[in-house]
Structures are given as C-alpha cells and as structure tokens.
C-alpha cells in the first residue's frame, strides 16, 4: 500500500508545471524515504531529478518499494481538477496498474477521486557522480528566469562566465549582443535577494537557452536558484522545495564543433 498526502495541492501543481514541458512521462520511484523521479528529456540533452522526502509529506506510507510510470500530460489534467487549497492524497495498491489522486476541500464537503492508468516505462537511470563544482552561484530565482527570458531573444545559446567578481550572462546573434552582469551582494536585508558566488576556478560555459527557459518553470517553487558549474560538465540548476525536497536539472554544455 502506498499513500502520500499533502495538505495543499499547490505544491504538487507547481512541481508538475516544473517538469511537464521537458518530460512527456516519468517514473515516480516510491520508497519509505520518499518519492524520486529521474528522467531525461526526449533529446537527451538534459536530465531532471526530483526528490521529495517522506518527512515533508503530511502523511506518508510506503509498505513496499514501487515504481509508478505516469503520463505527465494526463497527470496535469487530473491536477487541474484540484483547487489550490485542497488536500491531495496519492494512493496505490502494491503491484497495481493504476494510481488514485484524491482531492478533499478544506471544509471536507467535496471529495473527488481520479484514477489514472500507470505505464510501464523502460527508462534508463543514470548515475550522477558527486562533483566539486568550480563555481556555485546562488541568486533570486525570478532574476535568473528574467535573464534567461531576455537573452533568449538574441540567441539560441547563452554564455555564462563566472569569476570571483560576479557572473555574466551573454548572448549574441543577428540583432546584436546582450550582456547581463551580476555582482555578488553584500549586506542584503533579505536572504532571498542575495547573490552569492563560491568560486574555486573561473568558468566559461555555453548552454542552450531553450532548456534554461524550461528549467525556470520551477521558479514558483523557490525564492532562490543555485547554479553549479565546472568546465566541460553539465550545469546543475537546483530549486529547493521548502521542507519537502528539491528539483535539479542537469544540462549538457554546448561544445566547440
């Protein structure tokens, strides 16, 4: 028996919004430690890794490990039927071929359940090595989303250059070129407005704007985003989900042809 409850459907809606543009389907691996999903986008350029800890749920029970392959478009249709302040419970029997989403209104007067067929997905799991990154940048998630959106107008790719002084995002194309420089902040009132750079070695890397923009769909989940970079390895874009876990996107860099 598997049962996971969140007192507020908003978080689950936001999580799905953060992955459904990149992935058509995904396998939710459930164990007593929580729920994990790892999947590559169709073109194998990026990888999504979602971790939701069992202690972050309002109720969590998982008697046996189970993997639930879900069509994320179908899941989105179902979650659209939940009000933001509904309690959502995800339920499945052991070895079942369906999963049930139950939504309960605050006053308990409306209870709906939606059963969805599970899929057998033959997804490859990749081992992600522990890496000490040359540069780790923490910045407001809204600011990162804004920069990705702005620079995508000028080029298909953005160059991220990180030094001790700051981080610079650049794009150039037919129209011209754009550069956005962010300096590390000192003495900001609010932690969520801070820009923090931890640098061992400076890095310059090129990434596809399309994917960066897809990752920023996670912005409503977190005030801050963390970018981890080293030369010639995938960028990690991490959004923490308060008290529940995190979503990490890995993006292969563009390389000199």
């Amino acid at each position: 028996m598997f049962e996971a409850r969140l007192n507020n459907a908003t978080t689950l809606k936001k999580i799905l919004d953060a992955i459904k543009d990149l992935l058509n389907e995904g396998t939710f691996d459930c164990s007593d430690s929580g729920i994990q999903l790892q999947a590559m986008d169709n073109s194998h350029v990026s990888l999504v890794s979602l971790t939701l800890r069992s202690d972050g749920f309002d109720k969590f029970r998982c008697d046996r490990n189970l993997s639930m392959g879900m069509n994320l478009g179908s899941m989105a249709k179902i979650l659209k039927c939940a009000n933001n302040d509904d309690t959502v419970t995800i339920k499945a029997q052991d070895n079942a071929d369906t999963v049930t989403f139950m939504f309960e209104s605050q006053n308990q007067e409306k209870v709906s359940d939606y059963e969805m067929k599970l899929m057998n997905l033959d997804q490859e799991h990749l081992g992600i090595p522990e890496t000490d990154y040359s540069c780790v940048v923490r910045m407001p998630a809204m600011e990162f989303a804004r920069i990705c959106r702005d620079l995508a107008q000028f080029s298909e790719s953005v160059v991220i250059c990180c030094t001790k002084e700051g981080v610079k995002f650049s794009a150039s194309g037919d129209v011209g070129s754009a550069n956005v420089k962010l300096a590390q902040t000192f003495n900001v009132d609010k932690e969520e407005e801070a820009i923090v750079i931890e640098m061992q070695e400076p890095v310059v890397l090129t990434f596809a704007c399309r994917y960066l923009n897809a990752f920023t769909k996670a912005t409503p989940l977190s005030n801050q985003v963390q970018l981890s970079m080293s030369a010639d390895v995938p960028l990690v874009v991490e959004y923490r989900i308060a008290e529940l876990g995190h979503i990490r996107y890995y993006l292969a860099p563009k390389i000199e042809d």
Binding site: M40, V45, H125, G127, L251, K254, I255
Partner: peptide, 14 residues
C-alpha cells in the same frame, strides 16, 4: 560554432 552535448556522454547508465 558550437554543438549541443548529450547528457548521456557525461553520466553513466546505472
């Protein structure tokens, strides 16, 4: 000119 890398070139299959 740059070309897009594939994520599977960086992480090994489990």
């Amino acid at each position: 000119k740059t070309k897009q890398g594939n994520i599977m070139n960086f992480f090994k299959k489990k």
